[in-house]
Amino acid sequence: MPYISYHDKVIAFKIVYYGPGLSGKTTNLTYIFNHLPEELRGDMLTLNTSDERTLFFDFFPLDIGRIEGYAVRFNMYTVPGQVYYEASRRLILDGADGVAFVADSQPFRLEENIDSFQSMQKNLGHYGVDWKGLPIVLQYNKRDCPNPIRIGTLEQRLDLDGIPVTDAVAIQGLGVMETIHTLTRDVIVRFKL
């Protein structure tokens, strides 16, 4: 459920990039940030460890414009991917209106993708959210790696029939905009007051 201020006429949606460590969540967010007109976006906030890994979250607000008198905003977050930051991931999912799940296509990371998706399902459940009712896009990132996992593998293993899927090489910007485009459209289509 997005934040709505009827008095100040603001509607704000929360978009979260989720996935295993080093799958490319921050790369996605940074690409989007760098390719949006400056007047649409606020400053990007990053909370990194000393080795540039995401510690708590990356964040930037995106104002898409005023619609029917309401200022419409997407607040874009990433979660830290490393296994031991599970508590942080759960906190950032609180109030999410849509999730981009960034999977790593390298074959040896298949199980980590599965574990991460299952942790997302569990963490959403912590807030009483059924993941099946939430707009989610599955992005297969790093499609340029040797022998990438077959598209469809995660859907099959996790029983994700019908989930929107994109493929990407986020570091080159490929598939990044398709992912956020698909996700934000789905968020708006499902939006109810």
Partner: peptide, 10 residues
Amino acid sequence: FKEYALDLID
């Protein structure tokens, strides 16, 4: 609202 929002997103 949805029509305008989708147009902007596109």
